[in-house]
Amino acid sequence: MKILVCISKTPDTTAKIAFTDNNTKFATDGVQWIINPYDEWYALVRAIELKEADPSIALHLLNVGGADSEPIIRKALALGGDEAIRVNSEENDSFFVASQIANIAKEGGYDLVFTGKETIDYNGSSIGGMVAELLGNTYISHATKFDLQDGKALVTREIEGGEEQCQAAFPLVVSCQKGMAEQRIPNMKGIMGARTKPLKVVEPIAVDSMTSVVSFELPPAKAGVKLVSADQPEELVRLLREEAKVI
């Protein structure tokens, strides 16, 4: 069995969000980069657990990004996985990225592709579904549990208003979220080992993007908090009813 885990580079969750070049680019000065938490904590760690249970599984990591993605790829390899592939391209729109992933997944004959449910910067939640459609594979989104059973996948996923457990045959694309696994910290052995794991760099295939970012904007600042005394909760309730009109 071959598993491909897609990992994306995102700004740290505490990064200051600001823009440059006339609000057309994210200001990267002083920004720490991390593996997108959904990709790392849920997709990658669950894939590592599957491999721990069955060492015959081949586990490869994939990033579509520039050379500056390599530190986060090495960090991911320190957690686990046999090797990584980087498609050497600055990220473009979701369709461009999904096309690169689908191309690698098809060439490599992967049975299972894991993505995070979304990235914390673009919040597109589109890559998994697009990859599945490009490959003509089954797609299970918002997975909170994933197990292998009788050569099939047994997945619990979030649906509108609850969750369902379902079964599907491979090949499969799954987007992962909370519940799949618990965050891990790489250990020294992992970090040392990651340095020598293969990291293959390939050039992107030509794909026309379907969308582009025109500009970014920050939301207007809040007017400031109106404090109500702890002895006057009626005043809070009155304000919510008469001023904010929300209850």
């Binding site: 589109s126 579904g129 459609e133 797609y139």
Partner: peptide
């Protein structure tokens, strides 16, 4: 709607119809 159903379906539809998707 960009709810759990929409997030699962819209990207597939985008590829199928070659229609650019804005999610969220």
């Amino acid at each position: 709607s960009n709810n759990t159903t929409g997030k699962a379906v819209a990207p597939r539809l985008s590829v199928k119809l070659k229609a650019g998707l804005v999610s969220g």
